[in-house]
Amino acid sequence: MLRQVLKRLATAIPSVIGVVVVTFLLTRVLPGDTAAYFAGPAATPQAIAEIRAKLGLDRPLPEQFAAYVKDLATGNLGNSLSTGRAVTTEIIARLPASAELTLVGLLLSMAVAIPLGIVAAVKQGSIVDHACRMVATAGVSLPVFFTGLLLVYVFYFLLGWAPAPLGRLDVFYSAPPDVTGFYLIDSLIARDLDTFRAAAAQLVVPALTMGIFSLAPIARMTRASMLAVLSSEFIRTARASGLTPRTVIITYAFRNALLPVITTLGMVFSFLLGANVLVEKVFAWPGIGSYAIEALIASDYAPVQGFVLTMAIMYVALNLVIDLLYGVIDPRVRIEG
């Protein structure tokens, strides 16, 4: 097992190196002159040149790259030019917010989509099957900012069930002591149920928004994968042995159908994590996506580099976890690893 983990990690090294090089180059070819941007519209060419020299942007690219890699090695992602704060601390502070939102959204989505997909496959052509298709299609065709605004309108404005969509915690509460960065978990660790409830209340509507968007791929993949497995010969054997429908569907069919579902989950998760900018904007969520987009607009390359690199490493880690899960589920994968 450990051997497999190390082997997989080793194969990830080239891709991480590639990401480092590409992000560095990409941020250098971004349109807009960073120095000019920060010098302000009224700056003289001389002032701009001065700022450029200060940032090291006047030096040749290889030299800049060497400096960048040297900083990276010490965990220093540089400083944001617009806020002046270290990118590393910003990302560490914001990543849990995004991760918590995405994870809860994904869990909500899984809780609905997987059973729906299973039932749709078992009762193929039934009302549930059609309902599954409709819900999934509707969820994926509505843009997230629209579903987000709609949910805010209904649950905050009309019904008043949800708190104001303003960040992770109502202003009257203070953030729980930082352990994992996930407010839900940290408040439980601090045994502060009030804060837990407040954090959960803030989280539900944006998480729902993300969940609705990711229903479709999960439900569709579960259904398709279940259909394929249900028509295979060992299911016939299981039926011919008189096993109960529950055993046949859950123990025999679903476990075999899991592999593609897990692959999809991994893809959906990494996609949501990077692409939830719109949700974060609508709900004033202090996440990593909105941070990156603001930096990008400001040609502030250090946060952009940091963001892309973080995402790449998360993606590598996620894929490793998925590969390991494969091995847990399917013994045939283990020997090939």
Binding site: R236, Y252, D330
Partner: peptide
């Protein structure tokens, strides 16, 4: 071989 559950 196909008649047996491959992962059990």
């Amino acid at each position: 071989r196909a008649a047996l559950n491959p992962i059990r």
